[in-house]
């Protein structure tokens, strides 16, 4: 929800925004305001093929820029959404070509000049491992969402360790999420052992939006959580280099 809302707010501020969704479970398309119908098992079907050596490669003539242009869907506020695919009941086998194409594309995105001035937001699947691969290694800003529970705090510590262990680790910001009372922010800081850069309140409006399959900005742009995410986006605008980051969502961890 935070990644989708932040992506749209960045777009409203005039950025070209590309949202990357590598989560096999649904989520980002809905929070961008595309509804559940935008989730497909194989959005990149046919974009990758197996060579004679058995290795996957992008179809001839298909580079990262062309792939995004061809396969990304347009969400409200002009955000482009590029997805790896959602897990079909028969398992990952069926979406292999789509997943392969997705990773081939996003690993070449950072060097694609056409996207140099874009804000690229990757919504990563839950769990500390995800911070080591995917879009994450290329992120310049890494936001870790953490709830005021020890489980969430331990996950956040691990994510932060993984991110900081890299050579170019970029900026790491801890965001307290689902904050129910002011003491929760202190609790998160104590549990994780570092300061938070923003706090997003526990907000009934977020649950309503999720249940309705709607974006928070469409459901209630003036909800406390939406306003808090706006403040977060303002805060990121002050960071150098500008936000081109990953949102690591520990809420499902």
């Amino acid at each position: 929800m935070v990644a989708g809302t932040a992506a749209r707010l960045l777009a409203r501020r005039g950025h070209s925004v590309l949202a990357l969704d590598s989560d096999l479970m649904p989520g980002l398309a809905v929070s961008l305001g595309l509804g559940g119908g935008a989730d497909t098992a194989c959005p990149l079907d046919g974009a990758a093929e197996r060579g004679e050596d058995g290795r996957w490669r992008l179809k001839k003539g298909l580079g990262p820029v062309r792939a995004v242009r061809r396969y990304a869907v347009v969400a409200p506020d002009g955000v482009k959404l590029f997805q790896s695919g959602k897990l079909p009941p028969e398992g990952t086998g069926a979406i292999m070509s789509s997943l392969q194409a997705y990773y081939k594309v996003i690993h070449r995105l950072p060097r694609a000049r056409a996207f140099a001035d874009w804000a690229i937001i990757g919504d990563l699947p839950a769990g500390p491992r995800q911070a080591a691969f995917d879009w994450a290694p290329f992120a310049e800003t890494f936001l870790i969402l953490v709830e005021p529970t020890w489980q969430s705090a331990l996950t956040a510590r691990r994510v932060a360790r993984v991110v900081r262990s890299r050579e170019r680790s970029g900026a790491v910001g801890l965001v307290a999420n689902k904050v129910a009372d002011p003491a929760d922010v202190g609790r998160v800081e104590e549990l994780v052992g570092e300061a938070v850069v923003a706090a997003i309140p526990a907000d009934e409006r977020v649950l309503e939006a999720e249940r309705a399959g709607a974006a928070l900005l469409d459901h209630d742009p003036f909800s406390p959580a939406a306003r808090a995410i706006e403040r977060l986006v303002d805060e990121l605008a002050r960071w150098e280099p500008p936000a081109r980051g990953s949102i690591r969502d520990v809420e499902r961890a």
Partner: peptide, 11 residues
């Protein structure tokens, strides 16, 4: 478990 490294995205 290894924590830092993900299994390849496709099994």
């Amino acid at each position: 478990s290894r924590i830092d490294r993900a299994d390849p995205p496709c099994p």
